[in-house]
């Protein structure tokens, strides 16, 4: 579903991604872990071209997307993204946040989008917030709305960029629950996170990144119980106490 070949990305002189090769299949829940600055977020952002790769290839559904002439907007409609800082549209109500893209892009009519929005709000447990503005919501609620907003486009793939890192601890659980539900429904997901519990429980595969490379990849059991790479061991010894 997603194929990444020799992906490289630098910011000025800083090489963030050295050489990433990875294949993500349909239905996988790939959890990317690793220390800060290891390139996890940049890797994720290269998948929907929020960052333009310097070199290498990104393929989605058998089509290379980092070449001139590709309709980036069409590709992004297939890939939802959830951000660390939610990025809800503060001037719109919750329902308008959710219906904006599908209606603007002609995917759904206004009525269909509202109906879809109601279903999604029920899924994330926030039906009563349809007419609220983002400023009236807690962080956890905002993130659940952000997930609903992405799902309204009926994406094939969902990308999560540290979705719980900006939340108060007591809010984390609600957001993770929604993500678990989504994973169970068979959604293909790529999740950058520091939540090791989530990685263990929900991930079908773990990528450990460090220094712009994927150092180790495997099932949660392999990575957490029997890591092979020294750096993986060191990282896990620090985060799993």
């Amino acid at each position: 579903m997603i194929d990444v070949k020799h992906l490289k990305k630098s910011f000025n002189d800083l090489e963030v991604l050295s050489d990433i090769n990875e294949t993500i299949d349909e239905g996988e829940v790939v959890v990317v872990i690793g220390p800060s600055g290891s390139g996890k977020s940049t890797f994720l952002r290269c998948l929907n071209l929020l960052e333009t790769p310097d070199d290498g290839e990104v393929w989605v559904d058998g089509e290379q997307i980092n070449v001139p002439g590709i309709d980036v907007n069409k590709v992004r409609q297939k890939m939802g993204m959830v951000f660390q800082h939610f990025n809800l549209f503060p001037h719109l109500t919750v329902m308008e946040n959710i219906t904006l893209a599908p209606v603007k892009l002609g995917k759904l009519t206004k009525e269909e989008a509202v109906k879809k929005g109601e279903e999604l709000l029920a899924t994330v447990g926030l039906s009563e917030k349809a007419d609220a503005y983002p400023a009236q919501l807690s962080g956890g609620q905002k993130q659940r709305i952000a997930i609903a907003r992405s799902l309204a486009m009926e994406p094939e793939i969902m990308l999560f960029d540290e979705p719980t890192s900006a939340l108060d601890p007591e809010m984390v659980g609600d957001v993770l629950d929604v993500m678990k539900k989504l994973a169970k429904s068979g959604m293909t997901m790529v999740v950058v996170t520091h939540e090791m519990g989530f990685a263990k429980e929900v991930g079908t595969r773990i990528l450990f990144m460090d220094g712009g490379l994927v150092m180790e990849s495997g099932t949660p059991e392999q990575i957490f119980d029997d890591p092979q790479n020294e750096r993986t061991k060191l990282f896990l010894s620090k985060v799993l106490k």
């Binding site: 929020l50 951000f83 549209f89 893209a101 892009l105 486009m153």
Partner: peptide, 11 residues
């Protein structure tokens, strides 16, 4: 982040 959110939705 607002622009990124909009663009990531496919706008």
């Amino acid at each position: 982040g607002q622009t990124e959110a909009g663009r990531s939705l496919g706008l």
